[in-house]
Write a protein that binds this DNA or RNA. Sequence first.
DNA 1: TTAAACTTTCAGTAATTTTTGAAAGTTTAT
DNA 2: ATAAACTTTCAAAAATTACTGAAAGTTTAA
Lengths: 167, 167
Amino acid sequence: MEYEAAKEKFISTWGSLGTLWGINKAMAQIQALLFISTKPLATEEIMEELKISRGNTSMNVRQLIDWGIVTKELVPGERREYFSTEKDVQELARIIAKERSRREIRPVIKTLEEISRVKDDGSAKTRELIKQTKALHDLAETADSMLRKVVDQKQHWLTKSVLKMIK
Amino acid sequence: MEYEAAKEKFISTWGSLGTLWGINKAMAQIQALLFISTKPLATEEIMEELKISRGNTSMNVRQLIDWGIVTKELVPGERREYFSTEKDVQELARIIAKERSRREIRPVIKTLEEISRVKDDGSAKTRELIKQTKALHDLAETADSMLRKVVDQKQHWLTKSVLKMIK
DNA sequence: TTAAACTTTCAGTAATTTTTGAAAGTTTAT
DNA sequence: ATAAACTTTCAAAAATTACTGAAAGTTTAA
């Protein structure tokens, strides 16, 4: 495979993965483009490479910045803004895990807690709702806690030792 | 909160979570409904509870069966099919993690491998593509391996010991 | 203060995804 | 073989989500 083909494949693979993970296609593709770029890119260059509009580029770059995945690079003497993404995959994973926990898992945990405090009228169906909601709550808490901590500072030794344990 | 309100909240929360995870709303809601039901439900009952069409119900139940999350229950002497979902959350998590690995993570890993074998022309951009693709590949492998094994048989002791380690 | 160079916003449009419902298909009992 | 009771399919419609592009906004330099 030649460079151009490989690059396109990378961007489109990453783009469709994004959709699957609740990130839209353009956003994922911009990140992919920056991820394999050897230098920061300006809006214009992103638009051209991905064949998307200025507005689309602007909004999605902003979202990536919101997520903490992309940063503005100010090139001295240059008016326009350049963008680059976090290049270290471990750090990238850390940021994504943290944001997903905050945006998605935490709110669900809160709702499950609320639901499990439904008025217990003693009926079988109410009991079942309480029981199942609590079980899910516990699972979500455990998963979230693992996600956040595993991915935190201690990745290196932890990854290694966990893998050793379960192999 | 009264039972009916709690139930509706549970179903709608689960429904929107589903969307976020690449499962459609109806599919997630059907699973939610079965999850808190005290008995298996027939198509007709699902339609009524969720106010969705017969076709929609049929297609989404079939998908849930495909995923291995829902099973047909044959009630002796009854013509129609009843459905129930896996009630144990640990088992549910196991199935979902396994399926997501198979359907989503594995194919991406394969593609990343392919891309990282791009013809190395020695240019900086090709080198960057190779380097970054390989880094992502490694990360994905590690994450997938952890996901699959952590969630496998050994959940109990593992969860406990990992949590102890990272706390 | 003006103008050039750029970024952001947002209403309208386009693309995608989900849902419906009626017709076709299947199964079981007689 | 027929019919009743049920399930599945799928083309069309509805709903949702993403994208465009032009106008408005911002920043910097002179």
